[in-house]
């Protein structure tokens, strides 16, 4: 069976899944809108955890949070299920497809066969939609792909039960009830306030302070870890910022797009103005990535170069601090 489903490519997987599921259920909500209302923007350094033998930081909310917050703020109910047993997970999925209900799944990327090899790392927070089954193959709408694709039963089971950090455990989710009309305005304001609170949180690893912490660490890396490791770490900072679809700005551009749309909807010119400022901040992140890539490209070991990118990060931190203080007052 195949459910009639329109696939639309998105920049980021979770927003894309939510936006596509909403469209299927008759509500048009753009990807940036989902990202903004779900307070997707963040900066957080996760101490102690190592991925690919390098420290981890994230530029967005934890997987699952965007949808959770979005649903709560616009009044949708979602059902989430996790499984221990792959057979039970498959039965539930088939059951939903029989009921013409496309579902979102959390999957691991490593065994996702249609991904380019270079992108297949043990990263378990990818999201996609299953919208049907044909000749024993599941029909997949993966938001970061231009076109829809398909997976065999075995392939899907493998990615649903990937292991490692944040294992998906067959995690499946879908909306169950909707309000008569989506009231986005209060949801937008809540979303913005939440993001401001996160980014200005008085915790050394979160938000603006988190960026400063990373800047400090970068200064120490070449002396403490040696050039090779320092370059590897710096590469990871950029790779995390450059998750698929961020266009170099670590999700800042998507957020700017959200502010623009929100400003028009709320008839708040201040937000449209701030959207422009967010765009310039995104550009600064991009420049940081370019500068950092020069270091690890040449594999050079000048302390100076590391200090320079750390300075850039501190400038970004200052700009974002001012920005979110203004944004807090604008709504």
């Amino acid at each position: 069976m195949e459910i009639e489903f329109t696939h639309k490519q998105a920049a980021h997987c979770e927003n894309g899944v939510v936006s596509n599921l909403m469209r299927y259920n008759g509500f048009t909500v753009s990807e940036p809108m989902v990202f903004g209302i779900g307070s997707g923007l963040l900066f957080c350094y996760i101490p102690l955890l190592m991925v690919n033998h390098a420290p981890v930081m994230t530029y967005r909310a934890m997987p699952g949070f965007i949808f959770k917050r979005f649903a709560k703020r616009v009044g949708i109910k979602i059902k989430r299920e996790k499984f221990k047993n792959p057979a039970a997970a498959k039965a539930q999925l088939d059951d939903n497809l029989n009921k013409n209900n496309p579902v979102g799944l959390q999957v691991g990327v490593y065994n996702l066969v249609y991904f380019p090899d270079e992108y297949r790392f043990h990263f378990n927070a990818h999201n996609l939609i299953v919208y049907g089954k044909e000749n024993g193959r599941y029909l997949i709408s993966d938001p970061i792909m231009e076109e829809v694709t398909s997976l065999t039963e075995k392939e899907l089971e493998k990615v649903r039960f990937a292991k490692g950090a944040f294992p998906p455990n067959g995690h499946m989710y879908y909306p169950t009830s909707f309000p008569k009309e989506l009231n986005l305005k209060p949801a937008i304001i809540k979303g913005i306030k939440h993001t401001c609170r996160d980014m200005l949180a008085p915790i050394p690893i979160v938000g603006v302070k988190g960026i400063r912490t990373i800047a400090k660490l970068i200064r120490k890396w070449p002396k403490k870890k040696g050039t090779k490791t320092a370059n590897h770490y710096l590469g990871q900072v950029v790779r995390m910022q450059e998750e698929i679809g961020t266009g170099g700005g670590g999700f800042r551009y998507i957020y700017a797009a959200f502010l623009q749309e929100a400003g028009k909807l709320l008839e708040n010119d201040r937000l449209v103005e701030l959207s422009k400022e967010m765009t310039t901040i995104g550009d600064l992140w991009r420049e940081f990535a370019v500068e950092a890539s020069r270091i690890y490209k040449n594999r050079s070991a000048q302390d100076d170069a590391y200090n320079k990118v750390a300075d850039q990060l501190e400038i970004i931190a200052n700009r974002e601090e001012k920005f979110f203080k203004k944004l807090r007052k604008a709504v």
Partner: peptide, 11 residues
């Protein structure tokens, strides 16, 4: 994008 490609290649 080159900066990203280089980071990925290095990894």
């Amino acid at each position: 994008w080159n900066p990203k490609t280089i980071a990925l290649d290095n990894a």
